[in-house]
């Protein structure tokens, strides 16, 4: 079975985010008032082969925590987007 996965890499709340702060400061100039708490992260999509959804999630979490996020400053949220291919 092949599953599609979305990993969202986020900076920990207590880590300063200069990219987020810069985006937030730019918004009023574009006429967007009342937007705050901007945090910039990364989204990574990939496909994973696994016998079932639980295994797919476990494998994706391993990829996310071993490589995609640096646990010192980031955390990773992993979501299965769906089943792409099932054996007919």
């Amino acid at each position: 079975m092949k599953y599609e996965v979305l990993v969202e890499v986020r900076l920990h709340d207590d880590i300063a985010d200069p990219a987020g702060a810069t985006v937030e400061r730019a918004l009023p100039a574009l006429g967007f008032a009342g937007v705050e708490g901007v945090r910039v992260g990364k989204a990574v999509r990939f496909k994973v082969e696994a016998p079932g959804p639980e295994d797919a999630l476990l494998r994706a979490e391993e990829v996310a925590n071993r490589l995609l996020a640096n646990p010192v400053i980031e955390s990773a949220g992993v979501r299965l987007l769906g089943l792409l291919e099932a054996p007919s």
Partner: peptide
């Protein structure tokens, strides 16, 4: 080594 190197303050 412990810790991490993050984007500079002020970007």
């Amino acid at each position: 080594l412990p810790g991490a190197l993050h984007k500079n303050r002020g970007l």
